[in-house]
Write a protein that binds this DNA or RNA. Sequence first.
DNA 1: TTTCACCCTGACATTAAGTGTCAGGGTGTG
DNA 2: CACACCCTGACACTTAATGTCAGGGTGAAA
Lengths: 223, 223
Amino acid sequence: MRIIRLFSILDKLRVNRHPISAKTLAKSLHVSERTIYRDMATLQSMGAPVRGEGGIGYQMEKGYFLPPLHFDSDELDAIILGMELIASRSDDVLANAARRATAKINDALSEDKREAFKNAPLQAFSQTTKTRKIPFLSIFRKAVRKRQCIDLTYLDLKKQTTQRTIRPLGLTVFDKAWLLTAWCEKKNDFRNFRVDRVQSAAQTDKTFPRETGKEFNDFLKTL
Amino acid sequence: MRIIRLFSILDKLRVNRHPISAKTLAKSLHVSERTIYRDMATLQSMGAPVRGEGGIGYQMEKGYFLPPLHFDSDELDAIILGMELIASRSDDVLANAARRATAKINDALSEDKREAFKNAPLQAFSQTTKTRKIPFLSIFRKAVRKRQCIDLTYLDLKKQTTQRTIRPLGLTVFDKAWLLTAWCEKKNDFRNFRVDRVQSAAQTDKTFPRETGKEFNDFLKTL
DNA sequence: TTTCACCCTGACATTAAGTGTCAGGGTGTG
DNA sequence: CACACCCTGACACTTAATGTCAGGGTGAAA
């Protein structure tokens, strides 16, 4: 839907401090440059304070429209630290997402809170490297979200390789590992898999329905 | 242009005290009723607080339409997990703040993302109890924020109690502990203090200025 | 001055989205 | 119950949007 893309453009311009070229926007939004030029004309006709300059790119003229979100100091601390914690315990995709989310929240803040938020002397430490490759994490997050079954090859504690089709129900982040909770169609029961022990994970086209007794919440109730 | 009509609908609903029927809107905007129903569905998916009731008509639920805050799926995952991580590693104050922040972000999302956000099967695990008392954490966060010196009583590794006045510069959350980084006025150097080993912490009225070489960033550069 | 990186717009074939009509089902109020 | 409304799917048709190509402009750096 085009209207979503128009809002996305405004979003990106707001978040980014430097001009963005039509080429960059087009690539990021998977449309042609011509479409971006048209979108800009539409946004301008709607009164959005967007300006384009030859050789430079597009930028936002003023801080516009989005009413500030109101977070108190504790809430902002929680956000900063939370985003740091997840960034230091996940893969590049999720770490970058945390950074982007932080930037968006920053820009939705009122002026007086932005500086403090941006420069807050708070950090999170992880014993592992700051960001690293966690193969399959993004695949699992997507599968959980879309309720898509996965064909899994797993190396268990006995060093045996098993294969099965699972319903990925939920994910848990630990300090140094991720755990995928699934309903195993082979064993007809819940099973947990350490993500780092997964050898292969292939998405299937098969989605799984909601079934009482086989949901993430049902598993959590067994703990 | 459709987007103009969508905004026109919002304007009419905002201005009118009583419900307006799709038939009336259709006539006024020179489109069919079916188109109005579609437009309403679009507006609702965008998060506009518009409600329709059989036999009554459409009206605005609240007096104010917030343009949605746009987070993609990865960003929402990062927020959920980050808030869970911090909530499970801090004191009640910060854990509650994380929950409040999560709720506020949820409210700022468009309608179609709220349900998914709210019920996301993602969690964070901590080996310590979910929330607990961490004496002085809030005091330190405030002191860091306001750049206020603290009179500290600390139990070091040799089981000796020391007292000193410090400039609290920053905080680091570890998996099971918090570390306060400070500039110690007694030793004239950086010092780190495990928050759980602090015996007392008294705020002073004295604030400390920015001094090159004595900031949290300066300390981070030594690592 | 030239070159490069960008903004900008028209034209046109193609693709995608939107529309109105029709049908059928539901809710609220008097 | 009748009436006034909301709601949604299907489908033929209409309109809007898109990408490619072409050509022109501006600002900054060499």
